[in-house]
Nucleic acid binder design. Structure first.
Lengths: 384, 384
DNA sequence: AATCAATACTTGACGAAGGAAATTATTGAG
DNA sequence: CTCAATAATTTCCTTCGTCAAGTATTGATT
């Protein structure tokens, strides 16, 4: 885990993770939260404070009846260590330097002419160097790099088994990236990385179960159940994009019809907008502009797409019942066109109490994917 | 947990559960399986053997290269303790006496004129008495009763929050059943109970993740992820019946259209068969008979229903990626009419490797639900 | 037959991790 | 200025599981 330490007691990592994700919190509250005795928390916190990962804040405002010694909450020293996260897409690398709380310090990106592994690795090395050289104190404080890649990734070995988008098969990404950058590398699927970020530092904090849905060219879903990220046993999970919602819907590249992705994926929206308007040269931006201007056929395309997404989300809510669901992704730049229809589709199809599941719908800020990648390397610090 | 013991070491319950569910197994194999040292397994097994829950089998056939001391596998003494399980439906009680491995020893049932709580409790008391009096040694060997009820159940308190089928609301079932029977009672949702039974003693054994789909008047789904039964955070999970699969499909009682249950639930099948054949008096048995005789409209109804079930199952496979899926339920008495269409719908809609998920489709044996209830009380023995 | 290698299991000393409860610290209220 | 209330620490102790050495039981080799 930490530079100085070997294997650490379960309580130590539990305390660290809880303080990291649930902010400044007193030892007594931690003990309640983690089911430990307060003595155990004191002991677990000490080495973390000594190593500089935690600090004790000044006693703040009282909470209870008023009497009693005020708590001195434990807080993360977020600048104790820095992390690099890089998202690898088909045509660019997006990189960030983050602190322990996954706050972005610096970001940078590079266009990629071809997503050939050799090319990517070279560019990755340069990007990481650029990032770490952008401030004098970055490099000495950084030990870890997280990489987010779409597709089937083996996190334990850092092998990219198959990434259709990049057209990669069995690329030993961790090994090669470690050689080039000299950092300890963790590789994870991009949606899972983003889900972890949101679960640890975003709206999923504290949730025992949680789902993140990404809307874009593909429609994906990351799932946390029982506090742990779900990895399907056949390597597949979260494929909300291929939940079927209309047997008479448009053909999907997966071979079926009416999958959520075939209705609401970016490509599907463009295609449907072209058909609806009879203008074969229409781009996504055109379709958004048309719909925002009130063009009924264009609006209908977004309405149907939003509805499909909503009913896919309802399937998640009905099946696993997450405590909350976040909907995000680059596709939601057309947030205003989607949002009411996502909610409507969800409400229609969510059964019983599943309809009470809070839904956060918001566009995905730039570099969020890279931040997810950095989170994975923060998580690796704790797991190791 | 056990009569003599107080709180037991984690390793003890781990060893017990592993031997219970994964059959006769040597200490060394257990150590590997559980990530313990062999010494720890020896120590954990001793009290279990002394209490009569485990026994050591004679060394059996060799497995490895040939040399070395043969293993003396540990096995459950299934007759060490007996359990009663009762499934409460709207019009009858089905009860069984099971051993530790959930093998049914005796079963019995009672018709219920009205599912009024008072009525049910009285009848339950008599049923349990009948079961325990059916053999001289049953009563002294039985301490626990498991109850399976459809609807929203709080397993920790034994409160039936809401059961639409029984029209119960906030019935303190555990408390009342303990008073009447004198046994330690555990109450669980029926689908979850069945899922646990299949996970511990059926085809889900050893699977880290697993799904059970029940087909009948309703269509339900129990889910095991990360070795633990999923309970949605809003009390809802496994509602596969209300996954939408056709926006133009028949109206569902939930208010939406084209839910799996609205197409493939028993009631929906009868209704559709009546419409398809133009015979308003048709029963389910008639529809099955017609379809088996080759009547095209009747066959089409079952085909469409099977397909809907298959695509619902595919949604589960796509989203959580269970290691295997069992499809069962009283609805599958028309197994031959459903099976190929369930598989077809699943294959069409399962994405990528999710299509490799093994699917077991089979009718539900009589008293299986009650066996699930008994399993819950066996599980309670271990959890406590 | 005697020995050896291989595997299964047992044993007992040891160490790490948490719990229990007494103690200290720090506040507000009377 | 004392007391009650709450937070944190400390000390002692139990428990659990590992480690490593030793015992048990087999097949193969000489």
């Amino acid at each position: 885990m930490f530079p100085e330490a070997g294997v650490l007691a379960p309580a130590v990592t539990a305390v660290f993770t809880a303080v990291l994700t649930e902010g400044p919190i007193s030892r007594v509250a931690l003990a309640r939260r983690l089911g430990l005795s307060s003595g155990a928390v004191t002991k677990a916190a000490r080495p973390l404070i000594e190593m500089g990962y935690l600090e004790e804040l000044a006693a703040t405002e009282r909470t209870g009846p008023g009497a009693g010694r005020p708590a001195s909450p434990l807080a993360i020293r977020a600048d104790r260590e820095l992390f690099v996260g890089v998202k690898i897409t088909g045509d660019e690398l997006i990189g960030v330097v983050c602190d322990l709380r996954a706050q972005v310090r610096t970001s940078a990106h590079r266009r990629l002419p071809v997503p050939d592994p050799d090319q990517v690795l070279t560019q990755l090395g340069e990007l990481v160097d650029d990032l770490l050289d952008s401030h004098a104190d970055y490099r000495p404080r950084t030990r870890r790099l997280g990489l987010a890649v779409s597709g089937d990734v083996d996190r334990t070995t850092g092998l990219v088994r198959y990434s259709p988008f990049l057209r990669w098969r069995d690329v030993p990404l961790r090994e090669r990236a470690e050689k080039i950058t000299g950092l300890t590398v963790t590789v994870e699927n991009d949606v899972k990385a983003l889900t972890t970020a949101e679960h640890w530092f975003g709206e999923g904090v504290g949730a025992e179960s949680f789902a993140l849905v990404t809307v874009g060219a593909g429609i994906g879903c990351g799932l946390v159940v029982g506090g742990r990220l779900v990895s399907g046993s056949h390597g597949v999970a979260g494929e909300i994009g291929h939940v079927g919602c209309d047997p008479n819907g448009p053909a999907c590249h997966c071979g079926s019809r009416g999958c959520v992705e075939a209705i609401a994926g970016t490509g599907a929206i463009v295609r449907q907008a072209r058909e609806a308007t009879g203008r074969p040269e229409l781009t996504l931006a055109d379709a958004v502009a048309l719909a925002r201007a009130g063009d009924p056929p264009a609006r209908a395309v977004f309405a149907r797409a939003g509805d499909a997404i909503g009913s896919g989300i309802a399937a998640v809510a009905n099946l696993v019942g997450p405590a909350r669901i976040v909907v995000s992704g680059e596709g939601l730049s057309a947030y205003d066109l989607f949002e009411p229809h996502i909610r409507a589709g969800f409400q229609r199809q969510a059964f019983g109490a599943a309809a009470d599941c809070p839904l956060s719908i918001r566009p995905l800020p730039f570099e969020e994917w890279a931040r997810g990648a950095a989170t994975v390397s923060i998580k690796a610090l704790v797991d190791a």
